[in-house]
Design a protein around this nucleic acid. Structure first.
Lengths: 354, 354
DNA sequence: TCTGCGTGCTAAATCCTTTTAGCGCCGGCG
DNA sequence: CGCCGGCGCTAAAAGGATTTAGCACGCAGA
């Protein structure tokens, strides 16, 4: 039975300085530390009397007891903490949605997230991984801002790992987006609207092959082309462009138009290219979608800024982040999850007029 | 004294399963645990012989010893961990730069960052704060995606706190952006180029007053207007608009143009409004910057996507994140730091022609 | 010779929780 | 009667680091 002074001292100082420990709760409840631990963790092992349980819970509540995670993880070996290592947070603006998804997933399972940014430099990656490992997280997510294939440092050993928005050479579990279906959806959407003469803006050779550069873009092309082939169509115009920026979309579309307008729709490989296309099309006095329909990929901010709104496929960053965390926190992560990419239909696609 | 097998077991299995402990190092060096701790932490207290020191260091190196942070922080009370609570990661795309800045700052001081997202809901904020507090971080950053004034939960007690991109009602240390100077810079830039008839796009009453909505927008107006006043100028046109989206910028600018074009330049309150203005101006067959110059705020992605490039003031998110972390990790944080906002001159502003 | 002190090092306590081993008692079984 | 086993609970160990207290020894000064 506690001396009044001691418990009073702890009592009112919640949040400030010292916090109640198991021993404090035990003293207040007139029980042993073990008993308190048992009860507060609802261990089935040995049932304490209902009375004792109630006293303990009451004491814990009154003292606002919350276990010290350092002490707990020292004993148990688990930290209820997940490491989130990303190559580059700032590259893709939307990528913060990936973080959000992961954070939500962790919160739902009562874990907290340690973040680190590692860049693309191998040394810095190793340093970040060590820093994480030192904190003994229960798992690690490698988040890639451009979907790529990476090497996971061997140091990690058998710690559960999920690669987010990419794959690893070691064949670790990963979360990807379903670019094949996305490609098919975009192409089919135009085909269903009656378009038969379609131009491709942002065609490229390198990315299709090398999965170290991108594990997703190859699939995007694959999907587009399979849908075209199934409809018995081929592109009536292609503009090759590796650098998918608005400026390039603008120039590319101009070049395409110079070829004599033998298309009624454009598939742009991303929204920035599409935005450039808008400018080139406006400049010619043509109208979207009346004269030319456009569809693309990413659902970047600009897709909603422009008139008419751009029909595009959303990259489900948030869902992916969430999925990665779920994967990591439920049993042994394995396999490659493909998250569907929803088609956002806006006003840039209409039925073929001509 | 260890059976050979034990140390051999530990020896080669770095990263996997068990890791070397202080006791392992001590055993290998033939010293006491205390001695190892003393040496590895370079304690001045008692000098061990150079020979002993060398043996200890060698043993630690060979075993790839790294201290268990749980054990350490259990003893010391510090965790070398900082909590980063943000209201909403996804609202502002650029805001991820804030995260990056904070991460870099923490890395530089060998701290790791615990992230949590709290939204704007008081309950959820408290839950996030508790989750953080349970992990006993050495400090807390409250990052606000739209710069606002918030209440910091009292629970935090005397833990060092920095409010990032906002202020607290409790007067905690904070990192803000210098919107007054930014406002002045934008206005002066136009004035120096000879513009005397200037329109303001996105004027608004509410935001100017209520610091709970925004602690920065009021200053932005203040800066703009003080520079105008010093030059003896007043706006020749204003469009009021609370919702700073492209659509509204488009309509607003059309309305402004309908008033009879009595301005040669526009100050838009943000880039999205400015983007809308571009569209309205193009539609009239006018040219930027030949007929109308435009300058605005934020340096959003679209500022570089459009032609001509949009002159705007960058929000220094990354620097702010970094500054907040520096503040937190060096002594007692206090005061309000104003991070300068650089003017990005692009092609949307030219000398007055008419 | 004895005291005092600096040197080089270590045993033990401490931080807080979880887990293991087991105590004392009582009722039931053989 | 003696033994076993369940009940309700606790003492003690373990986990890995830091910190405090202090030991043994040798040397210098009185």
């Amino acid at each position: 039975m506690g001396i009044g002074g001691v418990s009073a001292c702890r009592d009112e100082r919640a949040g400030m300085g010292k916090r109640a420990t198991l021993a404090d709760v035990a003293e207040r409840a007139g029980m042993s530390v073990t008993a308190v631990s048992l009860v507060l963790n609802n261990r089935e092992g040995s049932r304490l009397s209902a009375d004792a349980q109630e006293r303990i819970r009451a004491a814990a509540r009154e003292l606002d007891y919350r276990p010290n995670p350092a002490a707990r993880s020292l004993r148990v070996g688990k930290t209820r903490t997940v490491g989130f290592v990303s190559d580059d947070v700032t590259v893709t603006r939307y990528a913060s949605a990936m973080i959000r998804g992961a954070l939500d997933g962790a919160e739902a399972r009562d874990h907290t997230v340690l973040m680190a940014e590692a860049g693309n430099d191998r040394k810095r990656i190793n340093r970040a991984v060590r820093a994480m490992l030192d904190r003994r997280p229960d798992g690690l997510i490698f988040a890639l801002m451009g979907s790529k294939e990476i090497d996971i440092p061997a140091e990690i050993g058998d710690l559960p790992v999920v690669v987010l928005n990419g794959t690893s050479t070691g064949g670790h579990a990963s979360v990807l987006r379903d670019e094949i279906t996305a490609g098919r959806d975009v192409a089919n959407h135009l085909i269903e609207r009656g378009h038969e003469r379609i131009a491709l803006l942002g065609d490229v050779d390198a990315l299709r092959r090398d999965r170290r550069l991108s594990v997703s873009i190859g699939d995007r092309f694959l999907g587009i082309e399979s849908a075209m082939a199934e409809a018995g169509l081929a592109f009536t115009a292609r503009h090759f462009e590796e650098d998918w920026e608005p400026e390039k979309g603008y120039r590319g579309t101009r070049a395409l138009l110079d070829q004599g307008l033998d298309f009624t729709a454009i598939i742009a490989m991303n929204d920035r290219l599409a935005f450039g296309a808008y400018q080139a099309i406006w400049e010619r006095g043509l109208r979207i979608p009346a004269d030319i329909s456009i569809a693309s990929f990413d659902d970047d901010v600009i897709a909603t800024y422009v008139h008419p709104g751009l029909t595009t496929v959303r990259i489900p960053y948030e869902e992916m982040g969430r999925a990665a965390m779920d994967m990591l926190l439920t049993g042994k992560p394995a396999g490659h999850l493909q998250v569907p990419m929803p088609l956002r239909k806006r006003e840039s696609v209409a039925d073929r007029q001509r």
